[in-house]
Design a protein around this nucleic acid. Sequence first.
DNA 1: GTCCAGGGCCTAC
DNA 2: GTAGGCCATGGA
Length: 223
Amino acid sequence: MQPTRRKLLDYFARMEAHFGPTHWWPGETPFEIAIGAILTQNTAWTNVERAIAGLKARELLTADALIAAPLEVVEQAIRPSGYFRQKAVRIRNFSAHLLVHYAGRIEGMATRPLQELRAELLELKGIGPETADDILLYAVGQPVFVVDAYTRRIFSRHGLVPGSIKYEALRAVFERALPHEVPLFREYHGLIVYTGKDFCRKTPACAGCPLRALLPGGVPCAD
DNA sequence: GTCCAGGGCCTAC
DNA sequence: GTAGGCCATGGA
């Protein structure tokens, strides 16, 4: 049940033909991207934008500033993103780690061996597999394939992987089949997000989806 | 009013 | 090792 490189590149080509370049991920600096990765956990991006704006308005978008500010100020700044008490602690945990080990600069992470850095991020409370891989791919620029709910939904509905597949197994599917190129991994995940947002939760099922023709038996997918 | 979003942690079997 | 509860806001 391992899809070929050819097949996964066909999915990519069809999404790219439909959407064009996504330039995923939204964010002006590596630090902002990393914080956005934490804030978007189980949360719609529109709410994350408000939270990022709240941090910018208070000049809190650096590791130093996030640590120096009172916790309640950070909480209020990110309140629109939901789970604001948890996330305030999480972005401060991440900031503290960044300050202690990398002088507060994401760029400092780029010199570390990828697997060691990934394990290090996963040690931090509030950084799970998807958030770690978001940070690695989009903030640090390392070739890891980001898996999310849309990835599992789309590729299991297409019969390419089991619906019960775990995060690491699904990540391995893509990383085994595809060349480890950062631009490809970045765009591939961005296109999956676009496709999932626009088509997976709309009715009639799959109308207009660029992957529609690839569905097994041409049958629209549904929950 | 109800459902749920680009997760992750903790607890109980 | 895994299923279930919890965290919280805003839009559909």
